[in-house]
């Protein structure tokens, strides 16, 4: 599995680690791992609505942080459960940019099997790093 939930990092909350060959894949898997905390059946989320996101930051790590927050934002602002549909990452000068399309639908608590809400993506032990095998990140979310 490209991600794993970790029990011993945050007793009251949820932590997960993600591994991927490319940075693009890592962003995708991290978003999925996070949204699966909210609904059990991400596989039943259909791409009925799209939202475009454009982000930039001076570090890749904080770009991932911002990226994950977008999903939490749309969950509250529009009740949308979204997946990453496409992503383009770029590096211009000192700035890391991201353009992405998020796709999904309005939450159906029964069909999607609602589990628990996420209040926020935290920065506790949060990291994104390149390894010998690709990319790795650790995320803790406050539920």
């Amino acid at each position: 599995m490209p991600y794993e939930y970790l029990d011993d990092i945050a007793t009251a909350d949820v932590a997960f680690k993600v591994w991927a060959d490319s940075l693009e894949d890592l962003f995708q898997q991290a978003a999925e791992a996070m949204m699966k905390v909210i609904v059990e059946r991400m596989d039943r989320v259909d791409a009925k609505e799209e939202r475009e996101i454009v982000l930039e930051d001076d570090s890749q790590e904080m770009l991932l942080f911002q990226f994950l927050q977008e999903f939490i934002y749309y969950k509250d602002a529009e009740n949308l459960i979204l997946k990453l549909s496409s992503i383009h990452l770029e590096h211009k000068g000192d700035v890391y940019g991201l353009k992405g399309i998020l796709a999904g639908e309005v939450l159906d608590p029964q069909r999607h099997r609602f589990q628990v809400d996420i209040k926020a993506v935290t920065i506790h032990q949060f990291y994104l790093r390149q390894t010998d095998h690709g990319w790795e990140c650790l995320v803790v979310v406050d539920v």
Binding site: F65, Q69, Y73, D76, K119, A120, I123, D142
Partner: peptide, 16 residues
Amino acid sequence: RGFGHQVATDYLQTLL
């Protein structure tokens, strides 16, 4: 609710 969570998230980054 989401309002307070976003305020906290926003300012965590601003202050950092």
